[in-house]
Design a protein around this nucleic acid. Sequence first.
DNA 1: TTGTGTTTTATTGCCTCC
DNA 2: GGAGGCAATAAAACACAA
Length: 290
Amino acid sequence: MAGGRVYPSNNDSTDGFPNNLSVLLQNQRLHPLFIPESSPSPFLGTRSIVSFEDSLKTSRPKRSIFNMFDEQENGYDEYLDECFHQPEKKRRLTVDQIQFLEKSFEVDNKLEPERKIQLAKDLGLQPRQVAIWFQNRRARWKTKQLEKDYDTLLAKYNSLKADYDDLLKEKDKLKEEVLQLTDKLQTKENEQRNSEFSDVKPLLLQEPSQKPIVVSMAACKQEDIDSDHIPQYYSDEFHSSLLEAADSSYLFEPDQSDLSQDEEDSLHPPASSSNFGFPVEGHPFWSWTY
DNA sequence: TTGTGTTTTATTGCCTCC
DNA sequence: GGAGGCAATAAAACACAA
């Protein structure tokens, strides 16, 4: 063994030495130390002391290592002989022993040397067995604790996820509501704008969907158009921008109070060419001549 | 009875602490 | 460097279905 402690090995039988023999012998020698006659343990004679008691159940007369030597007919040599031919068997602790250990574990899951000795005495076990039991018990406790923690975290996660999902739903719902309200508002604004638009009808297109400029231009005779007055940027695209401008309340409302009749005429062209009531900043096309 | 999965007891090797 | 704790693991004991 490269490291760690050296314990009587139950598995080391490479030399043919009986498994656990040293433990058995040790038990026999330590026995008076663990179970003083003055304070007899309720667990005396328990099968839990590493022994062959149960392993001998079926194949040989039942006896523990403690009464084995009390039998006059069985000598130590005979015992050794038996040991050499018996494979070691693990002993399970009795219910009483386990209850005792559990109670002790509840008090403190760590084992000081004095307590270990005392427990071993009380239970009729080797201190090493008590230490191993505590060690394994701590491992089981830790596993259980991890499972508990996992369950707790999972429950919390599920709860949070449910909350999160609810919030997402509510958010979508509110979003939808905002969209609907925005839509309504937009419609209302459009309606309002259209009504305002109709108030300045003389300046604007009645039907923005029409293509008045194109139509009016097409209706015009080529010779009627003074090419010097036709802006070079005149196009469908330009026309579209005019319509957009109208639609977005980008309206020109000139103060007509001081305009001359001629000017008024130019501001109110004939229906056939009424498209030119759209103002564009810097492009006084309403003053075009035909 | 037997095969299989689970639990319990014990070992091993490594690590930390004093 | 020894004692003791821990993780990983072996192996016996046990439970249980087929």
